[in-house]
Nucleic acid binder design. Structure first.
Length: 469
RNA sequence: GUCCCCAUCGUCUAGAGGCCUAGGACACCUCCCUUUCACGGAGGCGACCCGGGUUCGAAUCCCGGUGGGGACGCCA
């Protein structure tokens, strides 16, 4: 049997970190087994679904490089198919019309909660042999309910959590079509997973409780069409925020595209997400391809995992260091433009990226650190006071002259500084620090001779002149 | 409330009854490197939720407790 997995988000918001990991694992499972990965947009909640959200999900997947073999399929475009299946269930007696009003149901729920019972449909309109149903009220448009088995248990061997059993007595007859005729989530999923030949359903933990209902519907459907099979299920635990709390819209859940904006490389986010809840021995740093080759459901942790920005930073720093400067060029051009640096010299930009990328966690930090290569820095007052002391001024004057005559290479520049240091009986930092402050504005920078080599002779002399006045 | 799930360093995790004196990674601390800050290198701190049981032997298996999470929609 060919492996087919799917990622099935509902377009009610952006692609967040939890959804991204679910997609990543589904993607990897399909790749590992030479199967197909399908994207399906579950947009049956017309009131909450938006085209913007669809686009945001597509953008997020593209940024992460989670390519799908089929889709995106849209459930709203499959209405005809759902209606046919519902009709067949009605005909087979595995579904029925229910005329209970929303108000009636609400009252029932409250009553049950008050009695500390699990709120469930009371089966008023459920047909049974020998049972006499009430007369359908004329003013109520009926919903359609699935006739769930009442006895026995539903069990499956979850690929992550092991065997799970739920008694049918815990389940009630769920609504599969609303009063307006549109089908609901649990029903659409079942039809789609079946029609699309999904072999493994890999999804979030929060769907564990839907699984027995879906299995029951699949079984009812297989009574009608014997080719219909129940897929395997793998339920991934959720990702918690850095504080151990559940991620939600108002608490810590952000779009994966926010990570892009914040200066994270997709390689880093993928690598980080892969290691969140999954492991391959002691391996920590690996590519998406390596992940796909290694991936298996056996090594997924069943417990929830807390998001840790520090570790993401570490991975991001690794991937930035590893990147070729030219690969970062386009990105840095954009980020520098945001910082007011327009059309910088490309050779100079490449050289400064090469020098600076070794020391940053994010692409924004990189861009921040690059600015002074292209614009005169404003000098940090504390650093000026500490390092640009009156006694070094004459040495700087002397050095300026030497630099002016210097062959403009880091080696030669270093030599010129060294000569000035020796001649004046100083230690190297005594001159390097004032230079650093004068040229970069701060007391922290890469090797000052290398910075100077990139800045260029004219610019270095001009910046020195500015502090000597 | 009912049902379901989960439980190893602060965090992510290794761990399939003896390889465990519980390993790795991030973070933190110390030292080294050094031209400042980083990077890098070497060390260090630091955990099996509790209680029973099974067994010659339990982080690992079973039971109970506790704690955390999820679900209980004409949402997905």
């Amino acid at each position: 049997m060919t492996v087919r997995t799917r990622f099935a988000p509902s377009p009610t918001g952006f692609l967040h970190i939890g959804g991204a990991r679910t997609a990543l694992f589904s993607w990897a499972y399909a790749k590992k087994h030479g199967g197909e990965f399908i994207l399906r947009i579950e947009d049956t909640d017309v009131a909450r679904s938006t085209p913007e959200a669809v686009q945001a999900i597509l953008d997020g997947m593209q940024w992460l490089g989670l390519d799908y073999d089929q889709g995106p399929f849209y459930q709203m475009q499959r209405m005809d198919r759902y209606k046919i299946v519902i009709q067949s269930m009605l005909a087979a007696g595995s579904a029925y019309y229910c005329y209970s009003s929303k108000e009636e149901l609400e009252a029932l729920r409250e009553q049950q909660m008050a009695q500390k019972l699990k709120p469930r449909y009371d089966g008023k309109w459920r047909p049974e042999p020998g049972k006499v149903l009430p007369h359908p009220p004329a003013d109520i448009a009926p919903v359609i309910r699935f006739k769930n088995p009442q006895d026995g248990v539903v069990a499956w061997d979850d690929l992550v959590k092991g065997r799970i059993e739920i008694a049918n007595s815990e389940l009630d007859d769920l609504i599969i079509a609303r009063a307006d005729g549109t089908p609901t989530y649990n029903f659409c999923v079942v039809v789609d997973d079946s029609d699309m030949g999904i072999s493994q359903v890999i999804r979030g933990d929060d769907h564990v409780n839907n699984t027995p209902r879906q299995i029951n519907m699949l079984r009812a459907l297989s009574e009608i069409d014997s080719s219909i099979q129940v897929p395997q299920y793998a339920h991934l635990s959720m990702i918690l925020g850095g504080d151990g709390q559940k991620l939600s819209k108002r608490h810590g859940a952000v779009s994966v595209m926010q990570y892009h904006e914040d200066g994270y490389l997709p390689e880093a986010v993928i690598n980080y997400l892969a290691r969140l809840g999954w492991s391959h021995g002691d391996e920590e740093v690996f590519s998406k391809q390596q992940f796909a080759a290694w991936f298996d459901l056996d090594h997924i942790t069943p417990s929830a995992a807390q998001f840790n920005t520090e570790k993401l930073n570490w991975l991001n720093a690794h991937y930035i260091k590893q990147a070729e400067p030219t690969a970062l060029l386009a990105d840095q051009l954009q980020r520098l433009a945001l910082r007011g640096v327009l059309a910088p010299d490309t050779a100079k930009l490449s050289a400064s990226i090469a020098l600076y990328k070794e020391r940053v966690n994010t692409l924004n930090e990189l861009a921040d650190g690059l600015v002074y290569f292209f614009e005169k820095p404003s000098l940090d007052a504390a650093a000026v006071e500490k390092h640009l002391t009156p006694d070094v001024m004459p040495v700087l004057v002397e050095l300026s002259a030497a630099l002016n005559a210097c062959d403009w290479q880091a080696e030669a520049i270093h030599q010129a500084i060294n000569d000035a240091v020796t001649k004046n009986g100083l230690k190297f930092p005594k001159l390097a620090m004032p230079l650093r402050v004068a040229l970069t504005g701060t007391a922290q920078s890469p090797s000052i001779d290398q910075v100077m080599a990139i800045l260029g002779k004219a610019e270095v002399l001009a910046r020195l002149q500015a502090v000597l006045k």
